[in-house]
Lab assay of single mutants.
Amino acid sequence: MVVWDEDGFQGRRHEFTAECPSVLELGFETVRSLKVLSGAWVGFEHAGFQGQQYILERGEYPSWDAWGGNTAYPAERLTSFRP
């Protein structure tokens, strides 16, 4: 999975191949867009795999509404991930 700290695949970029309990440890404040290259990941609103969670299947997510636009409580950012 590849993530960016700005919408539209802009800004700082990082690629994950294993779980990440906090993007803050990588110098990111948040993740605002992402691409899942294969498989599925779970993205969490807060560090430590806490808060609202989203199943992220293979594909592109250019902004928060692409992963959470249909929920009652959409998270505008993700800060931890698990494959």
Rank of each mutant, 00 (worst) to 15 (best):
residue 1 M to A: 01
residue 2 V to D: 01
residue 2 V to N: 08
residue 2 V to A: 04
residue 2 V to Y: 09
residue 2 V to K: 01
residue 3 V to K: 00
residue 3 V to Y: 00
residue 3 V to F: 02
residue 3 V to I: 10
residue 4 W to I: 04
residue 4 W to D: 01
residue 5 D to Y: 06
residue 5 D to A: 11
residue 5 D to I: 03
residue 5 D to R: 03
residue 5 D to Q: 08
residue 5 D to C: 09
residue 6 E to P: 00
residue 7 D to P: 15
residue 7 D to F: 15
residue 7 D to C: 11
residue 7 D to L: 08
residue 7 D to T: 15
residue 7 D to R: 07
residue 8 G to W: 05
residue 8 G to R: 09
residue 9 F to P: 00
residue 9 F to H: 02
residue 9 F to S: 01
residue 10 Q to V: 05
residue 10 Q to I: 05
residue 10 Q to N: 10
residue 10 Q to A: 06
residue 11 G to V: 02
residue 12 R to P: 00
residue 12 R to G: 07
residue 12 R to L: 06
residue 13 R to H: 09
residue 13 R to I: 05
residue 13 R to D: 04
residue 13 R to G: 05
residue 13 R to K: 11
residue 13 R to F: 09
residue 13 R to T: 08
residue 14 H to M: 14
residue 14 H to G: 08
residue 14 H to K: 12
residue 14 H to A: 09
residue 14 H to E: 04
residue 14 H to Y: 13
residue 14 H to T: 09
residue 15 E to C: 13
residue 15 E to A: 09
residue 15 E to Q: 10
residue 15 E to P: 00
residue 16 F to T: 03
residue 17 T to G: 08
residue 17 T to M: 12
residue 17 T to W: 10
residue 18 A to G: 14
residue 18 A to D: 11
residue 18 A to K: 09
residue 18 A to Y: 10
residue 19 E to F: 00
residue 19 E to P: 10
residue 19 E to S: 08
residue 19 E to N: 02
residue 19 E to A: 12
residue 19 E to D: 08
residue 20 C to L: 11
residue 21 P to F: 12
residue 21 P to M: 08
residue 21 P to N: 15
residue 22 S to Q: 04
residue 23 V to K: 00
residue 23 V to D: 00
residue 23 V to L: 07
residue 23 V to G: 02
residue 23 V to C: 07
residue 24 L to C: 15
residue 24 L to W: 06
residue 24 L to Y: 11
residue 25 E to D: 13
residue 25 E to I: 15
residue 26 L to G: 06
residue 26 L to M: 08
residue 26 L to H: 15
residue 26 L to W: 04
residue 27 G to K: 07
residue 27 G to V: 04
residue 27 G to H: 05
residue 28 F to S: 07
residue 28 F to V: 10
residue 28 F to I: 14
residue 28 F to P: 02
residue 29 E to L: 15
residue 30 T to V: 15
residue 30 T to I: 05
residue 31 V to I: 10
residue 32 R to F: 01
residue 32 R to V: 01
residue 32 R to T: 01
residue 34 L to K: 00
residue 34 L to S: 03
residue 34 L to R: 01
residue 34 L to E: 00
residue 34 L to Y: 02
residue 35 K to T: 05
residue 35 K to W: 00
residue 35 K to N: 02
residue 36 V to Y: 03
residue 36 V to G: 00
residue 36 V to T: 02
residue 37 L to C: 06
residue 37 L to M: 10
residue 37 L to I: 10
residue 37 L to F: 07
residue 37 L to Q: 07
residue 37 L to A: 07
residue 38 S to V: 08
residue 38 S to F: 06
residue 38 S to M: 04
residue 38 S to P: 04
residue 39 G to E: 05
residue 39 G to Y: 02
residue 39 G to H: 05
residue 39 G to W: 01
residue 39 G to D: 07
residue 40 A to S: 12
residue 40 A to V: 14
residue 40 A to C: 14
residue 41 W to E: 01
residue 41 W to A: 01
residue 41 W to P: 00
residue 42 V to W: 05
residue 42 V to T: 08
residue 42 V to M: 10
residue 42 V to Y: 15
residue 43 G to N: 02
residue 43 G to V: 09
residue 43 G to W: 00
residue 43 G to T: 03
residue 43 G to K: 00
residue 44 F to R: 03
residue 44 F to W: 09
residue 44 F to V: 02
residue 44 F to L: 03
residue 45 E to A: 07
residue 45 E to G: 03
residue 45 E to W: 02
residue 46 H to W: 08
residue 46 H to V: 06
residue 47 A to I: 11
residue 47 A to N: 10
residue 48 G to M: 10
residue 48 G to I: 05
residue 48 G to N: 09
residue 49 F to I: 03
residue 49 F to Y: 11
residue 50 Q to K: 13
residue 50 Q to A: 15
residue 50 Q to D: 14
residue 51 G to L: 00
residue 51 G to W: 04
residue 51 G to M: 00
residue 51 G to K: 11
residue 52 Q to M: 13
residue 52 Q to Y: 06
residue 52 Q to G: 09
residue 52 Q to F: 05
residue 52 Q to L: 07
residue 52 Q to I: 05
residue 52 Q to H: 09
residue 53 Q to F: 12
residue 53 Q to I: 07
residue 54 Y to W: 14
residue 54 Y to K: 07
residue 54 Y to F: 13
residue 55 I to Q: 08
residue 55 I to V: 13
residue 55 I to T: 14
residue 55 I to A: 13
residue 55 I to P: 07
residue 56 L to M: 07
residue 56 L to T: 01
residue 56 L to W: 03
residue 56 L to V: 02
residue 57 E to L: 07
residue 57 E to C: 06
residue 57 E to W: 03
residue 57 E to A: 09
residue 57 E to R: 11
residue 58 R to C: 15
residue 58 R to K: 11
residue 58 R to I: 14
residue 58 R to L: 12
residue 59 G to Y: 01
residue 59 G to K: 02
residue 59 G to H: 00
residue 59 G to V: 01
residue 59 G to I: 03
residue 59 G to E: 03
residue 60 E to W: 06
residue 60 E to S: 12
residue 60 E to G: 04
residue 60 E to R: 03
residue 60 E to A: 12
residue 60 E to L: 05
residue 60 E to Y: 02
residue 60 E to T: 04
residue 60 E to C: 06
residue 61 Y to I: 04
residue 61 Y to G: 00
residue 61 Y to S: 02
residue 62 P to I: 04
residue 62 P to C: 10
residue 62 P to W: 07
residue 62 P to G: 09
residue 63 S to D: 11
residue 63 S to P: 02
residue 63 S to Y: 05
residue 63 S to W: 03
residue 64 W to C: 14
residue 64 W to V: 15
residue 64 W to I: 14
residue 64 W to A: 13
residue 65 D to E: 15
residue 65 D to Q: 15
residue 66 A to W: 10
residue 66 A to D: 12
residue 66 A to K: 08
residue 67 W to M: 06
residue 68 G to R: 11
residue 68 G to T: 13
residue 69 G to E: 11
residue 69 G to I: 06
residue 69 G to T: 09
residue 70 N to Y: 09
residue 70 N to G: 14
residue 70 N to F: 08
residue 70 N to S: 12
residue 70 N to D: 14
residue 70 N to A: 11
residue 71 T to A: 12
residue 71 T to H: 08
residue 71 T to F: 15
residue 71 T to E: 13
residue 71 T to C: 13
residue 72 A to E: 12
residue 72 A to F: 12
residue 72 A to I: 12
residue 73 Y to G: 13
residue 73 Y to E: 15
residue 73 Y to Q: 14
residue 74 P to R: 14
residue 74 P to W: 12
residue 74 P to N: 10
residue 75 A to M: 13
residue 75 A to Y: 15
residue 75 A to G: 12
residue 75 A to E: 07
residue 76 E to W: 13
residue 76 E to F: 10
residue 76 E to D: 09
residue 76 E to V: 13
residue 76 E to T: 09
residue 78 L to S: 02
residue 79 T to K: 15
residue 79 T to F: 07
residue 79 T to M: 14
residue 80 S to F: 01
residue 81 F to Y: 03
